[in-house]
């Protein structure tokens, strides 16, 4: 469970940092009246949807950290045989990076009001993301063709399970992206649309991060590191 514990430690750090700015030391029983400079209803000034997405991503992070924990724990058993990495994954990674970059460009362009660039970037992001999913399916096909089946060695079971779970999150993201793009295609660039694009970018960056983690995990590069961590954690 070392991966999830480390992840929770990070969450705890963020939560602790935030709490430490919330006057936890105040003595409410001595106060009355409205505090002179008090964060108003919009408490942090950050858009509510962004905060919500941030928290949701923490949940998604916990989910994948748990999959990683399970992966490492299962790996200790004698029957484990590493699955070779289909080479198409490298290409997929590059494609997902491109999608992230495209969305970042969309964010910048929408801030400056370049409608055409925004639309172009959104379409690029959507296409590259779909290409990523197709690439993942190709990786699955390659593995199946080579005899690494879902019900075969646990290493390949985990491969399908974790990449599939990641893919599902990407699919959900595409639904959101489609809605924002539709608004943008209709020529809207109001605050809501801009926020929507920013949220998409945030989500994509995070899923890219998760993907990189998954990649490292499946490639086995983290094994030694985890072995060291496990000396200290469970």
């Amino acid at each position: 469970m070392s991966v999830i514990l480390v992840f929770l430690l990070v969450v705890l750090g963020v939560a602790g940092w935030w709490l430490s700015h919330q006057r936890l030391m105040s003595k409410p029983w001595l106060e009355q009246g409205v505090p002179a400079a008090f964060p108003d209803t919009d408490v942090t000034g950050m858009p509510t949807a962004k905060i919500a997405l941030g928290i949701f991503l923490a949940v998604v992070g916990a989910l994948f950290a748990l999959f990683a924990s399970a992966y490492f724990m299962r790996m200790d058993y004698a029957d484990w045989q590493a699955t070779p990495l289909p080479s198409v994954l490298w290409l997929n990674t590059a494609i997902l990076v491109m999608a992230s970059i495209a969305l970042q460009i969309a964010v910048a362009a929408s801030r400056q009001g370049h409608g055409t660039t925004v639309r172009l970037a959104l379409v690029t992001a959507a296409l590259t993301t779909v290409a990523f999913l197709a690439g993942q399916l190709m990786a699955w096909r390659d593995l199946t063709a080579d005899g690494y089946l879902l019900d075969g060695n646990p290493a390949s079971s985990f491969f399908y399970l974790i990449t599939g779970m990641h893919g599902l999150h990407i699919v959900a993201g595409i639904v959101g992206l489609a809605r924002v793009s539709a608004r943008s295609m209709r020529g809207s660039n109001d605050e809501n649309t801009r926020l929507g694009i920013e949220l998409c970018a945030m989500y994509w960056h995070f899923l890219l991060l998760i993907w990189l983690g998954v990649f490292v995990l499946l490639a086995g590069w983290a094994n030694d590191f985890i072995a060291v961590c496990r000396q200290f954690l469970i």
């Binding site: 409410p28 919500a52 928290i55």
Partner: peptide
């Protein structure tokens, strides 16, 4: 639950009335 839970948390973070500090 995750859908509801996000709501409860974000409402406490963002929905508080004027003067409602966390410690109140």
């Amino acid at each position: 639950f995750t859908m509801g839970g996000l709501n409860y948390v974000v409402t406490v973070l963002q929905g508080r009335a004027r003067g409602m500090t966390l410690m109140r």
